[in-house]
Measured scan of single mutants.
Amino acid sequence: LLPSFEIGAWTEDDVYCWVQQLVRKGDSSAEMSVYASLFKENNITGKRLLLLEEEDLKDMGIVSKGHIIHFKSAIEKLTHDYIN
Rank of each mutant, 00 (worst) to 15 (best):
S73G: 08
W10Y: 00
L78H: 05
K25P: 12
T79G: 10
H80V: 10
S64G: 07
E53C: 14
E55S: 10
C17Y: 11
S4V: 07
W18P: 01
E54A: 07
K25H: 13
Y82F: 05
S64V: 11
K65I: 07
K77F: 07
Y16L: 07
G26Y: 13
L57M: 06
L57N: 01
E55Q: 10
E31Q: 04
S64F: 04
K25E: 14
A36W: 01
K40H: 07
N84H: 14
V15Q: 02
S33E: 15
E6I: 03
E55C: 06
R24E: 10
K72P: 00
A36P: 15
S64T: 13
P3C: 06
I69A: 14
G66Y: 08
N43F: 05
S4W: 04
G61F: 02
I68V: 09
D56I: 00
E55V: 06
K25R: 10
M32N: 05
D81G: 11
F71V: 04
L78R: 01
Y16E: 10
Y82M: 10
L1W: 12
S73H: 15
M60S: 01
E53G: 10
S29E: 11
W10Q: 09
L2D: 15
S4K: 13
D59W: 07
K77M: 05
G61A: 02
G61Q: 04
L57E: 04
K72A: 05
I69N: 13
R24I: 14
I69D: 15
S29P: 14
D13C: 00
D81M: 08
D81I: 06
H70L: 10
G26L: 14
S33K: 10
E53W: 03
V15P: 05
N84R: 12
G46S: 03
E31W: 07
I75P: 01
F5P: 14
L57R: 02
C17W: 10
K25D: 13
I62V: 05
G8W: 09
K65D: 10
V63H: 13
A36M: 04
T79C: 12
L57I: 04
D59R: 13
V63M: 15
I62M: 05
W18L: 02
N84M: 06
Y82W: 08
V23G: 13
H67K: 05
E76M: 10
L1D: 15
S28A: 12
